[in-house]
Design a binder for these strands. Structure first.
Lengths: 143, 143
DNA sequence: GCTTGACTTCGAGTGCACTCAAAGCCCCAC
DNA sequence: GTGGGGCTTTGAGTGCACTCGAAGTCAAGC
């Protein structure tokens, strides 16, 4: 079924490549995230390398927590051509900043977690000793 | 209504402190994430500083993407007392590792985004020029 | 010629984490 | 005595991002 003359791939192959289900790929098309795919003689969707690259980028955006609605918006700009370059750049910059914020947030949480782990380790090695101040400030068991 | 003798706070005050709605706080209690709060003479919940600290930690875990089910599990261990220290430490360590993975993932995405932003900037300053190879490799508009 | 498997469309269902609404009660302060 | 905040239970609704099922078409391989 793949269009051999054109190195096009089927939805099943794109599914395998991307790790998304065929359901999801069609869902993305319906949502305007993927442009309507071309069809072969049998009416089957055929995807080209550019589609694969685009999908990879979409997955990156998703991975960083961009909601589908926003990805759709970006995709719509992209579909409108070069006149939307500025707008797309603005979106990417905004998202890049949010991403930086998120990474910082997670790093802070990681430190908190490290502290807590340290306290737990200490409590365990001093096993048998009753809860001390550090314990009480973290995971106190009241009674 | 706060129990002044005991520096306890009401659900409304905890809501203000934590940023969670009273609905959500009761929901967390029902889900076993917060231990059933003590009540005052009028049957109103009263929370103590230790509860506030615990809730803060819960929110940290949530912030890092730990699902409520897992937080509930951790809370259950905590409620069982000191014998579960090892188990809790194991959970924290596991989560810490996932967090590290996630941070790395986001950092990779950030680099990809930076590259893309660079390409866009270049395209815009060279404005008017037709799409070049770099363009084609990122956000090609086929037609 | 029949089975297999991939494809089609459409609409409904899932899981998470809330979020709200209703209905009706209590208690305290002003 | 009224307003405000709190309490209870139950059940439904929301938003996101899928996820699945039904019912049917089509082409290739045995």
């Amino acid at each position: 079924m793949p269009d051999v003359t054109n190195n096009a791939i089927s939805i099943g192959e794109l599914s395998r490549l991307s790790g998304l289900s065929t359901h999801t790929l069609r869902f993305y098309e319906a949502e305007g995230i993927l442009q309507p795919a071309g069809r072969n003689s049998g009416g089957h969707r055929q995807y080209h390398p550019a589609d694969v690259l685009w999908l990879e980028f979409v997955l990156r955006l998703k991975q960083t927590g961009m909601p589908l609605a926003e990805i759709r918006q970006y995709a719509a700009l992209r579909a409108q051509g070069e006149t939307t370059l500025q707008a797309r750049l603005a979106m990417l910059k905004l998202h890049r900043e949010r991403l930086a914020t998120r990474i910082e947030e997670l790093s802070t949480c990681a430190s908190v977690l490290d502290d807590k782990i340290g306290i737990y380790r200490k409590m365990i090695t001093e096993s048998g000793a009753p809860a001390d101040e550090a314990v009480h400030a973290t995971d106190p068991q009241s009674p």
